[in-house]
Design a protein around this nucleic acid. Structure first.
Lengths: 341, 341
DNA sequence: TTGTAGGCGTTATCAT
DNA sequence: ATGATAACGCCTACAA
């Protein structure tokens, strides 16, 4: 069933059918009615492939991300707001998830290109030379999310991982903690693995607190990895740190679970602070003190930015930083007035 | 940059270029090399729109679901396995999420049709007459997930919500509970809202336990709604039930959080059992006893089924039921030997 | 092994 | 207000 069939059945030319479909020009009311009835009758839908081929525009944005499941993850909120913005502007989303198989990124980028998406939103993780090459020659505009990469002239929106991590650590220090551990992310992940670690170290430095490597482990974002990292720290030293900064709420939850399982009280014996403010965090036992980043704003900003570029508007600023906020709940204890044992 | 340009630059005809792209026929090694170099050089990718238009096949499956970020997590596992199956068979996914705006389903179904997806995987929630009409006339095969609807001749894969809910409730009863409440789902959701409730009631019935309406509230799947439902139950009666069945892990978590916040011990004072076995459940405090349904299997099954239909294989069975399993953790207390107070 | 030409379903340009 | 026709970029007979 195509436009030709509809034309025949309504006894008009295909141009006229096209006109009623797109409201692109005047069509006499009677004819319009006639055509519309046939369309409804036949359950006809125009073929976007043909339309987009001829218009050289798909009204589709490719969104590339790297996460296990779209679950509670911090991404899902951003993606929802991206979806909203794009939908409001008549764009569709083509979602691709590498699930941490970063090599697949290029494969998806190719598919995007073949499918002729009008632009791409890229939740970055690692950034390699190959990324550089590919992005440099990419035929449509890209907006990067979550990772700063100044070599390339593509705009990006990030949250200030360094400052936020420093703030989290400072909070721990304010509360009297001096023995502080960290459960970090993979160092290939610049934002989470590197910047948050740097922020942590900076806070320690400025307060003249030495970093104890026995207190420092790395996870892969999963709940289990947080659990395992905490276990390693426990095994590393007979005396646990009084506080842990987990660079991800999920890892924080994994860590707390380990502690509770071992009969170690949180926050009475060990305080834990997270990062992300994922949905469950407020409902966890104990409710998690963490860094809340405005994921909705990030998605909104990135999508809007891309749309502007697509509209040919000049985008002068290339760097956008979303705000964060420390949300204090119950997983960190103030030990300033603790009687020394 | 199109096939014609490549042809010109490599000094061959477009058919030859097409042949090297698709390996569809013999091409002399020298010519092939020549063309391949130009392709690489020009960073050329074939236009799928044109290709799919002419082949009348997009190798794309539309996946329609209805979840808000949070809830996605029970879906996300299924979706991952769907993605795997489809990818292995050369299919792409087009994901659409109504986020509980069920009216948008039809809009997306239309888009799928316009984009000429080869088939659709439909995570059903509510099923109305309009669905009936639309599905009846839908031009490509549909496989339904999570909801049984026999009027239509479309295959579906579900988990046995009724039996699983009954099993969960029976477990509570076995452990000596007689005062049992439920936090249910919206009744428009046949599987979660109705079937799980029916299973609950069936278990009560067979053990001659009366259902106490003060113990029964309904949530909307969110953590908050679980919290609020538990609060209502608390307000309804001076004496809390000894156990609660929440038809969703997230609502169970919300409920537990409410109880803990009020100083009510879980499971010592109130036991809670969930449904879904979402990622965090094992790491919650206390670890959540729940029904684990094989979401991966569901996704795998549904995708495979659709592929079979697409391949013209006769599918005789229309109904597939995935297995479930009760996973016992620490949120339910055995009160059989409790000293009566 | 390689090239030519028609058609996939639209929209857009130009007549009428 | 309506219709004929040439693209859009590709694949696939059919020819050479």
């Amino acid at each position: 069933m195509n436009i030709k069939d509809i034309a025949k059945l309504s006894d008009v030319s295909i141009s006229t059918v096209s006109r009623v479909i797109n409201n692109s020009a005047k069509v006499s009311p009677e004819v319009r009615k006639r055509v519309e009835i046939v369309i409804k009758e036949m359950n006809y839908r125009p073929n976007s492939l043909a339309r987009e081929l001829q218009q050289k525009k798909t009204n589709t944005i490719g969104v590339l991300m790297s996460a296990e499941g779209l679950d509670l993850s911090s991404l899902s909120e951003s993606i929802n707001s991206i979806a909203d913005v794009l939908k409001d502007n008549g764009f569709n989303i083509m979602l691709a998830n590498t699930r941490f198989h970063h090599d697949q990124e290029f494969e998806f980028l190719n598919i995007f290109q073949e499918k002729r998406v009008d632009g791409v939103l890229y939740f970055a993780s690692t950034f390699t030379d190959k990324h550089y090459d590919v992005f440099k020659n990419y035929p449509v505009p890209i907006v990067m999310i979550g990772q700063q990469y100044e070599l390339l002239d593509i705009p990006y929106v990030i949250h200030d991982d360094f400052s936020a991590a420093r703030a989290a650590t400072n909070f721990l220090i304010e509360k009297g903690h001096k023995e502080i551990g960290i459960i970090g992310g993979p160092i290939e992940d610049e934002a989470v693995g590197v910047q948050r670690l740097r922020g942590f170290e900076a806070a320690l430095n400025i307060h003249n607190i030495a970093k104890n490597d026995d207190y420092c482990e790395i996870g892969d974002f999963s709940l289990t990895s947080g659990y395992e990292a905490m276990k390693k720290i426990h095994l590393n030293c007979k005396l646990l740190p009084t506080a842990i900064f987990a660079v991800t709420d999920f890892m924080a939850i994994g860590a707390i679970r380990y502690l509770v399982e071992k009969g170690i009280k949180v926050p009475e014996q060990v305080s834990v602070i997270g990062f992300d403010d994922v949905g469950v965090s407020a409902f966890y036992n104990p409710p998690l003190t963490t860094i809340h980043s405005d994921k909705k704003a990030i998605g909104h900003l990135a999508a809007t930015l891309l749309l502007q570029i697509l509209n040919g508007q000049e985008v002068t600023t290339k760097k956008f930083i979303a705000s964060y906020e420390l949300v204090v709940r119950e997983s960190v204890l103030d030990i300033n007035n603790r009687i020394k044992s």
